[in-house]
C-alpha cells in the first residue's frame, strides 16, 4: 500500500468523480488533503466525508487570483505543498466542428487548459521555493486519440499533454516531477451526464468495460509516490486497452 503519511496534497475538481476518489485514496494513505472545487457546498460536503485532516477550498481554476489564493491557503495552513493533482475538467457540448460555438470553446479551454496552466504555475512557484514536490495532471486517453463530436475536450486534453511534457522538461533537473494520467472512460458524474449509451462506450476498450475512479486514483498515487522517481513527462495510460487498438 502507498504511504503518504505527513504529506500535503492539493486536488482540484475534488468534490466528485475522479478528484473525490483521489482525495479519498490519499486520505486513506495518511495524507492531509486540500479539496478544491468551484462549488462551495459540494466541496464542503466532500471534505466532511473524509477521515483525515482536510481543507475545503472554493476556487474557480480559470481565475488566476483564486488559484493563487488556493495554493496560499494550503501553504498557510500546512506550511508546504508536497503533491498537486490538477484534475478539474469539464466536457464540451457534443457537436461537429462546423456547429461549435466560440462560447463553448472558451468555456472548455478556460477550465481544462487555462485551469491546469494556472494551477501548475502557482504550484510550481511554491514547489520551487521549498525545493520539493510532484505534480500529476489529469489528461485523458483523449490526449492520444480523438472522439468525434468532442473537439474542444480532445483539443484541451492534447494541450494538457503538451503542457505537462514541456513543464516536465523545464523542471527535470529540480526535484519536482510532473506527469499526467490518461484515463479511458471512467464511471463518473461527468461521463454519465455527457453520454447516454454507456455500453457502446465500454465496447471501445479492449477490456469491454468502463474504468472505476479508484483505478485512476491508484495511478495518480503511483506517480505521486517515490516509486516513480525516474518518471517525469510520462503520460500514464489507465484506459482498459483503448489506445492499444
Amino acid at each position: 500500500m502507498f504511504d503518504f503519511n505527513g504529506k500535503t496534497v492539493l486536488i482540484t475538481g475534488a468534490a466528485a468523480g475522479l478528484g473525490f476518489s483521489c482525495a479519498e485514496s490519499f486520505a486513506k494513505a495518511g495524507a492531509r488533503v486540500a479539496l478544491v472545487d468551484i462549488s462551495a457546498e459540494a466541496v464542503q460536503q466532500a471534505a466532511a466525508q473524509l477521515d483525515s485532516e482536510t481543507l475545503a477550498i472554493t476556487a474557480d481554476v480559470s481565475c488566476a487570483d483564486q488559484v493563487q489564493a488556493m495554493v496560499d491557503q494550503v501553504v498557510g495552513a500546512w506550511g508546504g505543498l508536497d503533491i498537486a493533482v490538477n484534475n478539474a475538467g469539464i466536457s464540451s457540448t457534443l457537436e461537429p466542428v462546423a456547429e461549435t460555438s466560440a462560447a463553448d470553446f472558451d468555456r472548455v479551454m478556460a477550465v481544462n487548459l487555462k485551469g491546469v496552466w494556472l494551477s501548475m504555475r502557482a504550484e510550481l512557484n511554491q514547489m520551487l521555493r521549498q525545493n520539493r514536490g510532484t505534480i500529476v495532471n489529469m489528461a485523458s486517453a483523449l490526449s492520444q486519440r480523438v472522439f468525434p463530436g468532442a473537439s474542444f475536450y480532445v483539443s484541451s486534453k492534447f494541450a494538457v499533454a503538451g503542457l505537462t511534457r514541456t513543464a516536465a522538461v523545464e523542471y527535470a533537473e529540480t526535484p519536482i516531477r510532473i506527469n499526467a494520467v490518461c484515463p479511458g472512460n471512467v464511471t463518473t458524474p461527468l461521463l454519465e451526464s455527457t453520454i447516454e449509451d454507456l455500453d457502446a462506450l465500454a465496447s471501445l476498450h479492449a477490456m469491454k468495460r468502463l474504468g472505476t475512479p479508484q483505478e485512476v486514483a491508484n495511478a495518480v498515487m503511483f506517480l505521486a509516490s517515490d516509486l516513480s522517481s525516474f518518471n517525469t513527462g510520462t503520460l500514464l495510460p489507465v484506459d482498459g486497452g483503448w489506445t492499444a487498438q
Partner: peptide, 15 residues
C-alpha cells in the same frame, strides 16, 4: 491497483 491498465506503453525514462 493497475486493474484498468492494459495495452499501455509505460515510460520510465527521466523525461
Amino acid at each position: 491497483d493497475a486493474s484498468y491498465c492494459t495495452g499501455g506503453v509505460y515510460m520510465v525514462d527521466g523525461g
